[in-house]
């Protein structure tokens, strides 16, 4: 949504001058950065746990009922 209606979103009280391209780019860039960063951290954590579980499972003896 940010990418599609960027010019509309920039029409807020704190955006100083929407015609200022450098400022608009910074605002958009930082919005994307702050949105993706927590998702990236959570994804990284999940990836680490899955990798660790798989590594542990590969060293376990087979289940007696299997």
């Amino acid at each position: 949504m940010i990418a599609v209606v960027a010019s509309t979103l920039l029409a807020c009280a704190v955006c100083f001058d929407p015609a200022d391209q450098a400022f608009s780019r910074a605002l958009l860039g930082m919005s994307v950065f702050l949105s993706l960063l927590p998702l990236g951290m959570l994804g990284g954590g999940a990836w680490y746990v899955v990798r660790k579980v798989r590594a542990l499972e590969s060293h376990l003896p087979p289940h007696p009922d299997a």
Binding site: F16, D20, A22, F23, R25, A26, L27, G29, M30, F33, L34
Partner: peptide, 9 residues
């Protein structure tokens, strides 16, 4: 983020 936006403005 705040620093970058202030710098750009």
């Amino acid at each position: 983020s705040a620093y970058s936006i202030s710098a750009a403005a």
